[in-house]
């Protein structure tokens, strides 16, 4: 009994220590720096100021935030539309095929997402595989402009983040009690009704979890839009990177990081509230 709780303490303790040293402490630096002044000689001067937060709410930064939010939101919606039907059928096909499909979905994770993004460039470029195929089939006369458009940015983001949406939805679909659907059908409900009144509410926790797991990374990712979109607009990630690596304005970059974190916390809070609500209302309907 003693050794069991000892093991528990060690495992929890080491994780806590890890998070404290590599997440909490660096983040506290960011928080503190965001209230300091920029100093060209010493990088930051330990003088308290609100100026960084006044500077950050400029029209430019609001546009940067808006661009990032729209991109993340669009990615989440498209990913959901693609992932839901896939996860639904994944939950209903024979075990053997399902295992193969799950494996196929996970294998790309063995390769770095940066390298997979470069692979997309090879597919989409003007003299690339997709355009080569279209040209040889005489479907187009000249190469389609796919690379460096908003379309290729969305394809890249959706492709990279899709498994994060599929897995939570799949697990909630697996938990779905098929007897409820049979009962509804026996009572004369149409397929549309069954989906809207039974399947959707019961898989809502999976949808919310998946959306959060797609939305939050999409908000911070900037190398995919840079590589596939041609870096023609600026996202929060680019903005923060430039403050640190171009202008040496660490306090402003820190303030922007704090704002990004606050936006993410806000969405996590919404996730927390809605998942609790989804769980209780799901229970209520079952009762």
């Amino acid at each position: 009994m003693v050794s069991k709780s000892g093991f528990r303490n060690v495992s929890i303790g080491s994780t806590l220590l890890w998070i404290t040293v590599f997440v909490v402490v660096p983040y506290l630096f960011v928080l503190v720096f965001s209230f300091f002044q920029r100093d060209p000689e010493q990088i930051v001067a330990a003088v308290f100021t609100w100026q960084n937060y006044k500077d950050i709410f400029s029209p430019v930064f609001l546009v940067v935030c808006w661009n990032s939010l729209i991109l993340a939101l669009g990615t989440t919606v498209i990913t959901l539309l693609v992932a839901y039907p896939f996860a639904f059928f994944l939950g209903r096909i024979p075990e053997r095929i399902r295992r193969i499909l799950l494996l196929l979905m996970i294998i790309p994770f063995w390769t770095s997402s940066l390298i997979r993004t470069y692979a997309l460039i090879i597919l989409f470029k003007a003299n690339g595989i997709v355009n080569g195929l279209l040209l040889s089939l005489k479907l187009v006369d000249e190469p389609l402009a796919i690379l460096y458009t908003q379309t290729s940015v969305f394809i890249g983001l959706v492709y990279t983040l899709l498994p994060f949406m599929i897995l939570p939805i799949y697990s909630s679909i697996q938990k779905l009690d098929l007897r409820l659907i049979e009962a509804a059908r026996d009572l004369g409900a149409t397929s549309g009704h069954i989906f809207l009144r039974i399947v959707l509410p019961l898989t809502l926790p999976g949808i919310i979890a998946g959306s959060t797991m797609v939305f939050l990374p999409a908000l911070g990712l900037f190398y995919i839009p840079d590589l596939l979109g041609g870096a023609r607009s600026m996202l929060i990630g680019n903005f923060i990177k430039n403050q640190f690596l171009t202008t040496g304005n660490w306090p402003l970059g820190s303030a922007a990081s704090v704002i990004l974190t606050l936006i993410m916390c806000l969405f996590l809070y919404v996730y927390f509230l809605s998942s609790r609500k989804a769980r209780t209302s799901g229970m209520g309907e079952m009762a």
Partner: peptide
């Protein structure tokens, strides 16, 4: 370019947004 880099960056952000 000293602190003029802040001005450069400001215009760069405006150009990109």
């Amino acid at each position: 370019v000293g602190d003029a880099i802040l001005l450069y960056e400001k215009y760069w952000e405006m150009l990109k947004t």
